[in-house]
Design a protein around this nucleic acid. Sequence first.
DNA 1: CGGGATCCGTTACGATACTG
DNA 2: CAGTATCGTAACGGATCCCG
Lengths: 215, 215
Amino acid sequence: MPATVRYDAQYCPIARALDVLGDRWTLLILRELVIADQRFTDLRRNLPGIAPTVLTQRLRSMADQGLITTRPSDGGAGARSVYTMTARGREAIPVMRALARWGLPLLEEPTDDRDVRAWSAVNVAIAGYYDPVAAAGVDERYLIRIGDEEFPLSSVRGGGAAREEPDLVIDSNARVWIDIRQDRLTFAQARRAGLIRTRGGRSALANFRRIFHLN
Amino acid sequence: MPATVRYDAQYCPIARALDVLGDRWTLLILRELVIADQRFTDLRRNLPGIAPTVLTQRLRSMADQGLITTRPSDGGAGARSVYTMTARGREAIPVMRALARWGLPLLEEPTDDRDVRAWSAVNVAIAGYYDPVAAAGVDERYLIRIGDEEFPLSSVRGGGAAREEPDLVIDSNARVWIDIRQDRLTFAQARRAGLIRTRGGRSALANFRRIFHLN
DNA sequence: CGGGATCCGTTACGATACTG
DNA sequence: CAGTATCGTAACGGATCCCG
């Protein structure tokens, strides 16, 4: 939505949120920065169709509103600045999760593994199904591996920071997770077919499946 | 965002969701219909600033995409059609909740009770803080009253349909709930000041406060 | 009077080209 | 590499008008 005209007339937190997050591309830029810090060119490549002028403008207004900050590149060479999320920007992750979960049925069947971003798979198809009730009393760490990317998860909400020895390691590709959540496959079938490999204790696996609703 | 240009190039459920929900005004129209079925003129009045042509177009495309349906008015007189949410549209309520919660700190302090919509207060400041872990094992019904509007809530997620005798009735105005969530007031203070009145068992009240994080 | 449709000026967007 | 400049097009906001 246009940055100049806002939903000012409404006393509503949704309207306020959309004033900041509702512009075209804004949430997708944010999603990119959840995955990793990125430079201008990275973002441009990962957001097919965005005009460079629009990207410039969005990055500026997102910085103004405290969603992101720019950090001088530590890479040395020619690169100048890297864009990073702020804590306030990270608070919008639940918004992205809710959107992702709603959009999952609209997603066509993946044709190729490389189509599916690892972050989408983990955050949408696994973390998005986290069941805090099922997780009560469990304190375990899980390591999700998608290709060569690693995503630590915890049975305790917000307890994923410490990089301790995981109780369970799960290896697979991104597509399998989407297939499972679109009901073309069950977790059990994927394991039997060797599409998902697990290493760890039997009870950790049982907990994992219960906490993330995997049959 | 423009309805014609979509985030087609991305294999991402967030992009898909935004293709449908991301247009300017769309989520706010949906929010209106969560509150109540409405006619064209109602929507226009409740969405200050929307151009009638835009409203027409949004209603059409939202219907095309299965978010809403139009129902012939049962009211008789001059009115023709009433807009209602579909089940698919209702599935987007978590998106609105996430946005609302994110937007709450951006909301200025309410100046007048009538500024605050009852639905915002209940859905954002109460239901949005539901803690399923705290609710485990509790099966109670709560009735929230804001002015003359009533909102049944349940300690069991999705169990609010049956209109049984509530275990707890809470009377207040919308502003108080916003004040509480913006940390200008605690629940206990509001009760002592008579801004919130409760009727029901002592344990139901304790459960309610625990489940919805009210100190 | 409710429910829109038409027209118009302004703004934002997308595509391509260009520059420090 | 990291943007800026320019330009044509599409969408928006506001006002007005039309029809039952």
